[in-house]
């Protein structure tokens, strides 16, 4: 967030995004349009959704999304329409495909690995470890005796 500071220099103007005249009269359709727009990335602004951006392209795409919905497309079809032109890159919610397997399954894999690591660690330590300790060598025993003798001296 640090660069909130420096930032926004070139790209993000304060959001004015969805303008009143774009809004559809049918609230159900408009709600679908908003939901779709929130998950489509504005390419010009890089990391905003077209719903949040006031870039011209974002506006064009918002209008296009609404036109398709009015024409009777399903949400899926609208998204496919945009993806056909701009690729998977526009999807802020990346689809599960071979090249995103690691992304989507990574957290689960990490959790399983970490949890088994923890289980292993705790399992080994649930009992005092000292019991399995190696017996002292003759040399060590001699040193301990020496220390104890020193201690006994007044």
């Amino acid at each position: 967030m640090r660069a909130l500071l420096f930032a926004l220099l070139f790209l993000a103007l304060p959001a004015v995004a969805v303008e009143p005249e774009e809004i559809l009269d049918d609230p159900a359709l408009e709600a679908r349009a908003r939901a779709i727009s929130k998950d489509l990335r504005c390419l010009v602004c890089q990391n905003q959704s077209i719903d949040d951006s006031n870039a011209e392209l974002a506006r064009d795409l918002r209008v296009l999304v609404r036109e398709r919905l009015v024409a009777g497309d399903s949400d899926q079809q609208v998204v496919e329409f945009v993806v056909a032109r701009y690729g998977d890159f526009v999807l802020l919610n990346p689809p599960v495909k071979p090249h995103t397997w690691l992304l989507w399954f990574g957290p689960v894999i990490i959790l399983i690995l970490a949890a088994s690591g923890v289980a292993l660690y705790v399992g080994r330590r649930a009992r005092p470890i000292g019991i399995e300790a190696e017996p002292l060598t003759a040399e060590e025993r001699a040193r301990i005796n020496a220390v104890l003798r020193d201690k006994d001296k007044p």
Binding site: L43, V44, E56, L57, D60, L61, L64, R85, Y86
Partner: peptide
């Protein structure tokens, strides 16, 4: 004029 065809071409700048 309204960039509609450009969108079909996937133009973003």
């Amino acid at each position: 004029a309204n960039a509609r065809v450009s969108i079909d071409w996937g133009v973003y700048g």
